[in-house]
């Protein structure tokens, strides 16, 4: 009977499909939080599998900071067209224009934290009761404690000390009006698992993940791409480097690494030999030791 076991990638896939189907069965109005990053692309791919031969039965929600890589937006639009699903866009620019939030000041100002308000507004406006995210427990120490089904109160806040126990595969998505859930189908995947799976399934990803020549400046120990939103210091110098991105966020805060990995095979090999965590190049996590936990409590992804 020894052939009756799954490889770990198959087991992770099956677990994620199970969770996505539970979301669909337990909630009225779920969405996939889509950022254009590899984790949300993976979740979308798994959702295709979960509901095949039906198409994905719920919309994608993109929180648009306005500070995007143009490649990400192009990728998003192509994908939406192919999947024939609805796209909801929550605009941070709109939140700023309507006075819901104020732009941060200073050199390292980003729109990262502003997304929280835009996200929660979009959830409320569209009556979303479950937002499916690509968060993984290996990413960050606060995320290590996330449940598959993670409760948010009517202010959208997470209370990490008062989480519902989650046993076996029994998921409790019950909630009162105004509250919502976050669901994390790829909780148990690591960065390495994600890349191995993307390679195995040959999933399309934005070209930004592959090594390419780019104008960058050296800031906070990584290569920050030059864009119209970047304010250069006098002593900062623009260089052209062959880089790639390990994660994709705002163009203003996502640092690249020097790399020659221009194929999925090479990326898998490179990730396997990595000595730094993938969020090490994200200046949003460097603000304090508990930066992620603090943002998550307020309603971050």
């Amino acid at each position: 009977m020894s052939k009756y076991y799954l490889s770990y990638l198959d087991e992770l896939e099956s677990e994620a499909i199970y969770i996505l189907r539970e979301v669909w069965a337990q909630f009225q109005n779920p969405v996939i939080l889509f950022s254009g990053g590899k984790d949300s692309i993976l979740v979308t791919h798994l959702a295709r599998k979960a509901f095949f031969p039906s198409k994905i039965p719920f919309p994608l929600l993109h929180v648009d900071t306005g500070h995007n890589f143009p490649e990400t937006i192009q990728f998003r639009d192509d994908m939406i067209k192919e999947l024939a699903v609805q796209l909801i866009v929550g605009s941070v620019q709109e939140s700023i224009d309507t006075g819901r939030v104020a732009e941060e000041k200073g050199k390292s100002a980003t729109r990262n934290a502003l997304q929280i308000t835009t996200l929660l507004d979009a959830i409320e406006k569209n009556k979303i009761d479950c937002a499916i995210g690509g968060g993984r427990r290996d990413e960050e120490k606060a995320r290590a404690k996330e449940r598959f089904f993670s409760h948010r109160d009517d202010f959208g806040q997470w209370d990490p000390k008062n989480q519902r126990p989650e046993l076996w595969n029994l998921l409790n998505g019950k909630h009162f009006e105004g509250e919502h859930f976050r669901a994390f189908p790829i909780s148990n995947w690591t960065e390495m698992d994600v890349w191995n799976y993307i390679k195995r399934e040959d999933i399309k990803i934005p070209s930004l993940y592959l090594a390419h020549q780019r104008e960058v400046v050296w800031r906070n120990d990584s290569w920050i791409p030059v864009s119209e939103y970047l304010k250069l210091d006098d002593n900062e110098k623009v260089e052209s480097k062959k880089i790639r991105f390990r994660t994709l966020g705002d163009i203003t805060i996502t640092g690249g690494i020097e790399s020659e990995a221009d194929t999925l095979e090479k990326i898998v090999a490179e990730v396997a030999a990595m000595k730094q965590t993938e969020r090490g190049n994200r200046s949003d996590d460097k603000r304090s030791e508990t930066a992620m936990e603090d943002r998550k409590r307020q309603g971050y992804f």
Partner: peptide, 18 residues
Amino acid sequence: GLRDEREQGITIDVAYRY
């Protein structure tokens, strides 16, 4: 993991490691 745990030096919830 969490702020409270770091301050108190104990594990109070299930944390997953890989």
